[in-house]
Design a protein around this nucleic acid. Structure first.
Lengths: 238, 238
DNA sequence: CAGGTTAACTTGTATATACAAGTGCCATTT
DNA sequence: AAATGGCACTTGTATATACAAGTTAACCTG
């Protein structure tokens, strides 16, 4: 049923009925319905009892690696990714990172500070804290050469799932200087905790984007819940 | 199979095998597998060939109406929602709203400007533009009484799907005054285009949140793509 | 011509069965 | 004691069949 689920159907296209698909693929209805159920779960087709499926306009999504790796994302949009490393340091975790990573205060971690570029233009500042076992691998890696995410995956680090929180902050002195922008301008902030398959926190990152260059977008419908959640916080904006 | 898909299973719980579920529910394997496939598509259970499903920690999500209606969302988090309407006006659409709604420049629309409160604290400014056929209903509605979203649904308006874009902006004079905050502070901005079931744009809204009070969060994994997409823009921040 | 009815077709749900591919535990062998 | 193999059990995929619920278009009647 790969040809159904992987099919490149134009939006608005009326798929054949299940009976026709069975004839066309020379198969029973079970696998056809399974494939269509998958497309429905992805929001890719619509329809209902009595009406054959119709292709909906594509629902934007990004894979785990595309979303979590700036380098991969930049390439995907046809931009040349770049990075300048300000620091790779082994030090005691900040209170915020310690809390996010479930570490005791004062635990040794590896912190990375980089500016990320799109076509030579500063687009984002990335402050990342890794647990020591993961971060130590970076001392053997040229962090100016590309994707830390890809490197760690190659090293067998199980970067499996992440929670992302999005808010807005004012550019600090340091931010402003690195991004070549005025101090205090609004930056779109994404904080991320990445875990291994068995739930161990491995990475805590705070990325600050120029909103002029990067936005986040999502679709939702009455039929399909948004995985993006608006949450209430009590914290003060730094 | 409602009892499976609606079951309140604690994270980490080992579901019975499919054979046992068949015995327990006195049904064939088909519907059991269908229910489990649904849970898998929601990311709620994991497992695989040879291993019975196990419940994963819950994946946060919000329904269309909870995400799109500030009032409903506020109630859901135990806060008292409030609103103060600055304006309900019939006028020519702004160029931006016209473009978003697919209207000719100068087309008459209905614009609403409100401050939204959580427990009497200003939390968000909402600037909404409705196409005329929808917006005109608001002249018979007390927009200080609650949810426009709910009211329009009651009126039979088919608010069906939406695309949300998230970025950050600096608080304007007006923003700052309405939110009782200093001018220029970073605000988390969500722009939304809401459409009817047959794709007609009905509403364009620009909501500006205090990031100290409201964030957005999402989970993604290697197995399950994020519907939230990081996009590249070329626009300048206003 | 407009409205109602009906039949053919559609998807949704379910049953029983069969085989393939994978897991995990226990017993045997090295 | 550790490694390996076998077996019972598991999920994944598929077939054929049956019935229910809904859609759509054609036909008939007023």
């Amino acid at each position: 049923m790969r040809r159904i689920t992987n099919g490149d159907w134009p939006p608005g296209f009326q798929l054949p009925s299940e009976a026709e698909l069975c004839r066309e693929f020379g198969t029973s209805r079970g696998p056809i319905r399974q494939a269509l159920a998958f497309l429905r779960s992805e929001g890719a087709v619509t329809g209902g009892r009595g009406r054959p499926p119709m292709v909906r306009s594509s629902v934007p999504s990004q894979s785990f690696s595309t979303f979590n790796s700036f380098t991969e994302w930049a390439r995907g949009i046809g931009k040349k990714p770049g990075q300048r490393t300000l620091e790779v340091a082994r030090r005691e975790a900040s209170p915020e990172a310690a809390e996010a990573l479930g570490l005791m205060p004062g635990t040794t971690v590896v912190e990375v500070l980089r500016v990320r570029y799109l076509d030579e233009v500063p687009a984002m500042i990335e402050r990342t804290t890794f647990v020591l076992e993961v971060g130590r691998k970076l001392f053997d890696f040229d962090t100016d050469s590309g994707s830390i995410f890809a490197f760690l995956k190659e090293q067998g680090v199980d970067l499996h799932s992440a929670r992302h929180t999005i808010d807005a902050v004012a550019a600090s002195d340091e931010d402003a200087e690195l991004l070549e922008q005025p101090e205090g301008i609004p930056l779109l902030r994404e904080r991320r905790i990445t875990r291994s398959g068995d739930g161990q926190p491995l990475e805590y990152s705070e990325d600050r984007y120029l909103p002029a260059l990067t936005n986040f977008t999502i679709d939702n419908t009455v039929e399909r819940r948004a995985a993006l959640v608006r949450i209430h916080t009590e914290g003060a904006t730094p």
